[in-house]
């Protein structure tokens, strides 16, 4: 479904992605692992159109995403839930969710509100609260909920468990798996390698802008390099 090939991305003189390639098949849940600064966020931003690659291609089925702007890429069903949640602080929970459905026709979003509220009942209780005053965990639920409001075919999640209490982390991962089982393809970026691999089919490991390892999630969990670097021995 998504095929990234030979991607080079720069920030000015900084060479952040040095020719990485990876792919995600329809219905899959794939994890992108890597230390801080490896280039995971950069990769997601390039897919969603916030960054332009200097070289390489990002193909979604027959579409060349590297030639499109972010507003067009969303309309193809590629939805990016950014790192750090990026809730609109001066929108209410409801307005944030509505913003997620911006690219769609207003008439068809009713059920999706219900779907998001079933996944995250807390959001329903807080519907009229300002995004900026939600707790970190509530903001993360809202960020994922807002992404779902766009009716993604491919969901890009950047560190959805960051800064959350262990119980909530488990809940978020369970939700991600549930969303995937509903037929949404997911590319997940995570620091929590054990959890991420436990719900994924495949994974890639990035190091300073290159893919150093890839394979089935079950193989990666047992690989020495992943164990040493991300799973604490």
């Amino acid at each position: 479904m998504l095929r990234v090939e030979g991607l080079h991305v720069y920030y000015g003189a900084i060479h952040a992605l040095k020719g990485i390639s990876f792919s995600v098949a329809e219905g899959e849940l794939v994890t992108l692992l890597g230390a801080n600064g490896a280039g995971k966020t950069t990769a997601l931003k390039t897919i969603s159109g916030l960054l332009r690659p200097r070289a390489g291609t990002v193909a979604l089925e027959e579409h060349a995403l590297e030639e499109l702007g972010p507003h067009e890429i969303v309309r193809l069903g590629v939805v990016h839930v950014p790192e750090g949640r990026k809730i609109f602080p001066r929108f209410t929970v409801l307005e944030n969710l509505k913003a997620g459905a911006y690219a769609r026709r207003a008439s068809s979003i009713r059920e999706d509100f219900d779907f998001v509220f079933t996944l995250f009942p807390r959001l329903k209780e807080r519907a009229r609260q300002m995004g900026g005053t939600l707790s970190g965990g509530e903001q993360q639920m809202l960020a994922i909920g807002r992404g779902l409001m766009a009716k993604p075919k491919l969901l890009l999640l950047d560190e959805p468990s960051m800064g959350l209490a262990p119980l909530l982390v488990e809940q978020i991962f369970a939700t991600i798996r549930a969303i995937n089982q509903q037929g949404v393809t997911i590319l997940l970026v995570e620091q929590n390698a054990a959890m991420a691999l436990s719900i994924s089919e495949r994974g890639y490991v990035l190091e300073t802008g290159t893919v150093i390892l890839e394979g089935k999630a079950s193989d990666l969990v047992t690989s020495d390099r992943v164990r040493q670097a991300y799973l604490g021995g």
């Binding site: 972010p70 950014p82 990026k86 609109f88 929108f91 911006y102």
Partner: peptide, 19 residues
């Protein structure tokens, strides 16, 4: 809504499909 979203965070607004 789009104007207010861009005022709060242009990159995230773009991710919502706002031009």
């Amino acid at each position: 809504t789009a104007i207010r979203a861009v005022a709060q965070d242009p990159d995230t607004a773009a991710l919502m499909g706002i031009h």
